[in-house]
């Protein structure tokens, strides 16, 4: 142990800042923000309506579901897992919503049913992973298929129109340029940020993801943590089921496979390690915004829709390359 390096005086704040800016790890941690600013500059210079309040508003609303799903995904990835079932659980919850709505249930009950569906699906995922000791990937791959199957069975493969003034308001109105759904996503982001960094639970999530062995040795139940994070992810997916119905005015059993991949992409863009143990909430939120801005901007400048998945893929891989510089 060399005492000299250990007792070095702390650098002055200004010094520390310039040091951080020269550190590639800093840029890797903030890849999503850099990407967001970069894309904004590019799209704004190509089409001046990009930053118009109308377009910004629609970007933010369009991002809401991806943001919320990505938050749940962040928790599962922070434990070293992955939830491949988020999008199908969302679809299933939307179908449950549509079904209970057609059955004549009151709106709050329909919403509760959708959230409960997500919660149960998530808890089941977590329980099987923790108690069955089956890899996260396999279990959620199974529930991806199972949830979309249940959605098809319950809806008989047909979409259900849901007409509700409340849902219409939820998806179209808001405060200024911030739609209600986006504001909801922000509130959830703030809450889950506090949960991750300011509670014992959050520390235990990071500990279980960083080193399950160390967590267990200090008496943390990694099984309980797994169940909890998948329940969080499932519940948020259930909530997104409601937002999805509100957005398209109907519940449809059509599976949205790219959505799951986009949540993982947002989390990776947000600088969260897929190995677990390191996570932020702000990162994936920005990552989700980057992906939404990318799709919106490409459409705005008239690039064919067919190029969008390609561009998303390129952005994610570039971000992953930058991630190699993480500490």
């Amino acid at each position: 142990m060399s005492a000299t390096t250990l007792d070095a005086p702390p650098a002055s704040p200004a010094q520390a800042r310039s040091q951080r800016l020269r550190d590639p790890a800093f840029w890797a941690d903030w890849a999503a923000l850099v990407g967001l600013i970069g894309l904004t500059i590019v799209f704004q210079s190509l089409n001046s309506t990009f930053l118009s309040s109308g377009n910004v508003q629609s970007i933010l609303v369009a991002a809401a579901i991806l943001i919320i799903l990505s938050i749940g995904q962040t928790y599962t990835i922070a434990t070293g897992g992955i939830d491949l079932s988020v999008a199908s659980v969302m679809t299933f919850a939307a179908v449950v919503f549509g079904w209970s709505f057609t059955e004549g249930w009151a709106l709050p009950l329909c919403m509760a049913a959708a959230v409960a569906t997500g919660l149960l699906a998530g808890a089941l995922n977590g329980f099987i992973i923790a108690k069955g000791k089956i890899p996260d990937f396999v279990v959620t791959l199974g529930s991806l298929s199972a949830a979309s199957g249940l959605a098809l069975i319950l809806s008989d493969g047909k979409p259900t129109t849901v007409i509700s003034p409340f849902l219409l308001k939820l998806s179209t109105q808001g405060i200024g340029i911030f739609g209600w759904t986006f504001l909801l996503a922000l509130v959830l982001a703030a809450l889950t940020h506090v949960l991750l960094f300011n509670t014992r639970f959050g520390t235990h999530v990071l500990a279980a993801g960083g080193s399950a062995e160390a967590a267990t040795a200090t008496g943390i139940s990694t099984a309980r943590i797994k169940i909890a994070v998948y329940t969080i992810s499932g519940t948020l997916a259930g909530l997104c089921g409601i937002l999805l119905v509100a957005r398209i005015g109907a519940s449809s059993p059509a599976a949205d496979t790219t959505m799951t991949l986009n949540t993982v992409a947002a989390v990776v863009l947000g600088g969260v390690s897929l190995l677990g143990g390191r996570a932020t909430i702000i990162g994936p939120v920005l990552g989700a915004l980057v992906l939404t801005v990318l799709v919106n901007g490409l459409t705005l400048v008239g690039v064919s829709q067919f190029y969008q998945p390609l561009s998303v893929g390129i952005v994610v891989v570039l971000a992953a390359l930058l991630m190699r510089f993480q500490k």
Binding site: V194, T203, L206, S211, I220
Partner: peptide, 26 residues
């Protein structure tokens, strides 16, 4: 050693013994 590498020294020292304020926050 049972340490979590990505957590700080103080987080490791207090792992599963975290001190919380009356609100339940760390």
């Amino acid at each position: 050693l049972a340490l979590v590498e990505d957590l700080t020294v103080w987080q490791n020292l207090f792992l599963n013994r975290e001190l919380t304020n009356p609100l339940g926050l760390l």
